[in-house]
Each structure stands twice: as C-alpha cells, then as structure tokens.
Amino acid sequence: MTYKKRFDGRDWLELRPIEAKAGVIKNADGSAYFKIGKTVAYAAVYGPRELHPKFLQNPKTGILRCYYDMMPFSGIGDRVRPGASRRSKEISMVMEKALAPVVDLREYPNTTVDVFVELPQTDAGSRCAAICAAAIALADAGITMSDIVSAIAVGRVDDKIVADLNYDEESYEDGPVADIPMAILYNSKEISLLQMDGEISKEELARALEIGIQVSEQIAQIQIKAIKDKYMVNNNG
C-alpha cells in the first residue's frame, strides 16, 4: 500500500486554505488571527512593558516571552488539560527561538514583550500556525523586526514528500511518516525553527526543506496582506 492521494484531496505541495487577520483583540497592543485548514491560532502581543521579577531584566535589551496554549476542547481526541504542560512549554520555547532572530528590542532595555497564543481548534501544524500568528501580531504591535517569520510543516507520508501535513497524515499508519515543522525568514530565507518527528532519508530531507522554503513565500504574502489590510479598511469612515 502506498499513499496515492492525500486524504483531503490536495496536491502534494498544496497548502490548506489560509486566512489571516490583524488587530482582532482590541485590548492588546497587537494581535492576529491565523487559520490554516482546521488549525486556528489567536495571538496577542503586550508590550514592551515593565518586566518583573527584576532579575529577569536585561539592561542591554528587551526580552521576548512566548506563551502557547491549546484550549481544552481544541484537540481531536481527549480534552487537553489547560495550562503549562511539558509539550506547551517546549513549543513556547521554540516559538521564542524562532522569533528571536528578527525582533530587535534594544531600544527598550529592561522590558519584556509578551506574546500569548491560544488555539481554539487544532489539526496538526499548531506550532507553525502559532508562529505565523505571532509574527503578524508582533508587526501589528509596532515591534521593530528585521523580517517576517513564516512557519510551515513539510515531511513525508509513506513515499511522498508533502507540504503542510494535517492530523490524518501525521498519524498515517501504513508507512513511515516524517513531520518537519520549520520557520523561515521571508527575505533572507534563513531557517529559525527546524524540528523533526519520524524518519526520512538524507536526500528526501534536503528536498523537503527546499519545498518548505518555497511554500513559505505564499504564507508570508498572506501575512503581509493581513497586516496591511488592517490599515486599508474604512477609507470613508
């Protein structure tokens, strides 16, 4: 048995439909909504603001803190226990590291910028959606950033190289699967997040990464449009 056609009928390198919007949470300094297929992420950015406890402060630069959380009803299976878990802590950390190379907070020493991402619904690719939403929200909050970060999962399902795996593909049982979430900077095409789960050959990995860099362009365009749209609306009041 080989994987002949994708479960949701997409082309091998086709992404799930994406929707993005900036400025959805009025109380936050910047916010965003990012939906890819059935995965939905809301990001809210607060700051730069005072950082306590004081020993966390860095007198050279502001710091970036991320918080990732799946809502209890968001998963496909059991209720997800809310709050910090081993998994959500890891994803919070990789988000921070994926976004850190672009944000520049040297103008704001001793402060913090907090990014909160909540996922009301998930269907694989949640850390990628979280990073995409966070990037839009940071830009919306007027944080100095050298680039836009877009994230996407690539990988293999059986003998096929695919982009943007959904949950059914991630849990494909009739052959080997590799799931590689990656974050790519829009201009420099540098990779700021690269994780892998599963098995893949060296050649296939190289091809998958190339595909990831290619398709990230589409996501970046959607992200850029989302930020601009916030300021284009209500031209006549």
Binding site: V102, T144, M145, I148, N187, A220
Partner: peptide, 29 residues
C-alpha cells in the same frame, strides 16, 4: 510591513526604522 523591500539601489539611504542588506533597503516596522 517589516521585511518589505523598500528600494534596491545603493543610491538610496536607509533612514529611521529601515536597514540595508546588500543593495536592498528593508523596512523594520
């Protein structure tokens, strides 16, 4: 938006909230 290329020419100079990368001038905010 951040990451958008503003100019691709050494004749232009990067001002506030922009930076130069090779020949390009890119927005930072």
């Amino acid at each position: 938006v951040p990451g958008e290329v503003l100019a691709d020419d050494v004749d232009y100079l990067p001002g506030q909230y922009t930076y130069r990368s090779d020949k390009k001038i890119i927005a930072k905010r």
